[in-house]
Write a protein that binds this DNA or RNA. Structure first.
Lengths: 345, 345
DNA sequence: ATTAGCAGTCTCGTGTTGAGAGTGCTAAAT
DNA sequence: ATTTAGCACTCTCAACACGAGACTGCTAAT
């Protein structure tokens, strides 16, 4: 790919920015008058022709303005966009919202989704906390009703798993507390791998049964999603003109309802990359076919070097990338900060 | 309102049913040929004119077929529709799905939303468990990290509340367990009202602080929603022709994203009525303006006579009421059954 | 290298027209 | 007194035509 001249970059940048705002093909004359360029529209037209040959622009029909292509957006995001920061007062406002929320990871995540949706004006996704190498911290068994027992597991990441067990015979709370104590001593600070290796010499007894169930649960706790993906701001998207065709709107909705796919997508993108920064996925990048008409801006969150989850926004190709990137970056940093703080306090 | 003749009822019933299927204005000729009526189209036209005068039908323009009005739908649902049962094999299938799910109320509710969406082909809503007169059952305090403590409260309904507290000073697990024990003895089997009356003579001490926080939490636990409203099947709706105008689609999406409003709507409808059956709300019934173009089919769930939550579906006015009612009835009965079972076991 | 000027192309809104669908009414039939 | 055949009438909708307007691409001049 040959390099672009400065002027070509300028034209591309202005065009993309303008198109993101107006959603209409941008003409050469419009660029000149709108941005008071010192060159004539004919010159701009020539530059546009070059940009089109390079695959950055596209003409909907012979005599219309230009629209960015996916490579066009990509070039813009990577080299031209520049990185805005969220205005300070907005940052303060968001911080305030988080500090006055309950001191609870789940609440933070749900709030993140809502904040992202509101400030980016597109749809937001936040995956729940799930850590790969969490260590067992603590466990409680609570009698709820008859043979039902609530098992609460706390991992060192702050993650909490909750599950109801049904036992073969009824045990009272004192017995349960005893069992919990034993397990806590046995398993404290071990990770799943180490728990696997605990080869227990179990007698046949209700205690053994419970132990077995619980160890299974703990071993699987990495797989079991600790909650659902948080989503918000769907209605934002339907205002965008690209979704006036109900067919497209439906496609996007389906992406949004498919928790599994989303969780997978976010996890894959972020766990597999060692880049802790913000990822921009434009039109599925030839890998995800369903996302042909959608862009994603993702970032991971976590404490220190541990990736614990992901936040992101999802919108049409023609979304405000600069605003999106800064919002996603700010929110992911903020959650990471809050989680780190809560882990070290 | 004068009574309708049998023939008028027949015409109305066929017309509504046909319109629900086709989404197009129904003409007199179509009814005659489609249902092999023994009367001529002219007679049907006369009957239609009567039905229109009674406010049950509406003509989009001078020379088109007829479409049901809201009162038309209402009459159909109340007097003409007849009550289907879900086919036995479908019932079995759904039961199977529930039995192989985890033994957990939250999982059941989330599954309910998905089952409802799938079988009714519209969007589904399920409110979380929340009981008005729950009694405190049991509480646990778990040290998570530093001054952070996880508070788990179990109510006799099986409902579980979870919340993180941050204490002024760090306490170890043994101390926490001691405090939990005291509170459990103090508060066991009391409801919020009774807890309110517990006028404690608290010394100034960390324990007092914790007790206060916890009692506040318990008192408020009725208000705090124990989780979110479960939703599913949004994409189903966008296939319906009424949502081809993006404006309408957006309205509906906004209803769907407004958890608070939904929870309120469902609770109000079902807690305030002593009718445990299925409610059909057509076009907001002049009370909810946002629901002008939407119908809801709702039912409560719970054990014995205690209403614990609501399940429902939400679709266009032109939705399949008979299928909807039978699905909602079946699912709400099934959850009630499962909850009752789990409470008595 | 840039630009003014202009012919050429395509969209889009508007207006027209005719076929088709369905009704309401009237008068005849049952 | 109902019911129905027949028919004039109304309204929508798809198809087509047409002209204005918006941009471009090219060429020739700067």
């Amino acid at each position: 790919m040959p390099g672009l001249t400065e002027r070509q970059k300028l034209v591309l940048a202005l065009l993309v920015r303008d198109y993101i705002e107006t959603a209409e093909p941008i003409s050469s004359g419009r660029l000149v008058s709108n941005y008071k360029l010192e060159i004539s529209s004919a010159t701009v037209r020539n530059e546009m022709a070059v940009l089109e040959q390079n695959g950055f622009l596209f003409q909907p029909y012979t005599s219309a303005g230009r629209v960015p292509t996916k490579p066009g957006y990509r070039y813009y995001v990577q080299r031209l966009m520049g990185e805005d920061q969220l205005p300070t007062h907005v940052q303060e406002m968001i911080r305030h919202q988080f500090y006055q929320a309950r001191h609870d990871v789940d609440d933070w995540l749900s709030l993140s989704a809502s904040v992202l949706a509101q400030h980016s004006q597109v749809a937001a996704i936040v995956t729940p906390l799930h850590t790969e190498k969490a260590r067992f911290k603590h466990l409680a068994l609570l009698s709820t009703r008859g043979r039902q027992v609530l098992l609460v597991i706390i991992l060192d990441s702050g993650e909490v798993h909750q599950q109801t067990l049904v036992l073969e015979e009824s045990l009272d709370q004192d017995q349960l507390t005893g069992i919990a104590l034993q397990i806590n001593q046995l398993a404290e600070d071990r990770n799943a791998e180490e728990l696997e290796k605990l080869d227990l010499d179990l007698e046949i007894s209700p205690l053994a049964e419970i132990l077995e169930i619980i160890l299974q649960t703990i071993k699987n706790s990495e797989v079991i999603s600790s909650g659902d993906v948080y989503r918000d701001g769907l209605a934002n998207m339907l205002s965008e003109p690209e979704f006036s065709e109900p067919e497209k709107a439906k496609q996007t909705l389906e992406i949004f309802e498919d928790h599994v796919m989303l969780d997978d997508l976010l996890s894959r993108t972020l766990f597999e990359s060692d880049n802790r920064g913000v990822h921009v996925i434009i039109g599925g990048e030839d890998t995800w076919d369903q996302l042909k008409e959608t862009s994603l801006i993702l970032a991971s969150y976590g404490a220190k070097d541990r990736v614990m989850g992901a936040v992101g926004i999802l919108g049409p190709l023609r979304m405000s990338y600069s605003r999106g990137v800064s919002t996603v970056r700010f929110v992911s940093d903020l959650i990471s900060e809050l989680i780190s703080e809560s882990m070290s306090s």
